[in-house]
Amino acid sequence: MDIFYPIQLFSDWITFDIFNIEATTHLGVSVNFFIYDSLKIIFLLLIINYFMAIVRHYLPIEKLRNFLASRKWFGLDYFFASAFGTITPFCSCSSIPLFIGFIEAGIPLGVTLSFLITSPLVNQVAVVLFAGLFGWKITILYVISAMFLGIFGGFILGKLKLEKYVADYVWQIKSKKDENASIKIPFRDLIKTFWQEGWALTKKIIPYVLLGIAIGAAIHGYVPAGFFENYIKADNIFAVPISAIVAVPMYANAVGVIPIMQSLVEKGIPLGTAMAFMMAVVGLSLPEALILKRVMKIKLLVYFFGITTINIIIIGYLFNAFVK
C-alpha cells in the first residue's frame, strides 16, 4: 500500500468536501494536486532535514576534506569527492571558502571541481523532491548521473592542467588547523540542536517548494496532456542541447525547479530534455560564475562551464534514449 494514501484522502477531503470544488474541473485537479504534493513533500523534508543535521554534525565538510587530503588516492578521490558532494548541503555562498579550503589542503584541482559540480545538483532536498515526484528509480538514476557528471567532469578538468588559472592569491592562503568544534555539547542538547537546524532549513525552503509545486499544480490541472509534444518533438535532435544552453545562465534552486519539471514531463516533454534543463539551471548559473570568478581566472571558468555543459547534454541524450 502507498504510505502516502492517508495524505491523498486528506487532500481529497479538503478539496472536494471543504472547498467544495468539483473533482473533474481544472481547478479541482490543480488544488488537489497542490495540497497532496505540498503535504507529502513537507513531511518528507522534515524527516530528511533532521536526519541530515545529524550527518552534518558527525561528518562536517572539514572532516571530509581531511579524509581526501590524507593520502594519495590514485583516482578514487574523484569518486569520493563527488560522493561527498551528494551528502553535503550546499549553498552558493559556501563555494568560495570550499574551493579555497580544498585547494589549500592540497587536494588536486580536478577533485575539487568534482565536488563543486556534484554538490549543488544533489542534496537531501533535491533527492526528496525527486523521490516524491518521480519515484525511486528515476531518483537513483539522477543521483548516478550527477555523480558521473562530477567524476568525469572533474577528471577531464584535472587532466587539462589548469592549475595556473586559479587566482594566484588562493595558493598563498594558509589556514589554522584544528580550530573547530571548540564546544563539547551533551547528547541531550544535540537532539535539540539537530531539530533546530533541520527545522531552520525546512522553514527556509518551504516558500520555494510551495511556489514550485503551485506552478507544477497549475500545469498539471490546466495544460492538456501531450500539449508540449506539438512544440518539442521527442526526436528533435537539438532539443537537449538547446534546453541545456538556454538554462546555463539562469539560476534557480533545485527545490523550485523539480516540481515544475515533473509537470512538464507529465505533459509530454521528454525526461532527458527536462533533466538537461534542470541540471544546467541548478548546477551552472551566471551568479555562480560571478562568485567563482573571485578564485578562478576566466580560462578555468570557461573550461569548467564548457565541459560541464557538454556532459549535461550527454546525460540528457542518454536519458531520452534509455529511460522510459
Binding site: 565538510i61 572539514e62 576534506r65 549553498c91 555562498c93 559556501s94 568560495i96 571558502p97 570550499l98 579555497i100 579550503g101 580544498f102 589549500e104 592569491y169 592562503i173 594558509k174 589556514s175 589554522k176 588547523k177 584544528d178 580550530e179 573547530n180 573571485r294
Partner: peptide, 12 residues
C-alpha cells in the same frame, strides 16, 4: 574570504 578560510571553516 581569506579570514573565513584562515579560521579553518569551509561553509558560510
Amino acid at each position: 574570504i581569506q579570514k573565513i578560510v584562515e579560521m579553518g571553516v569551509m561553509s558560510s
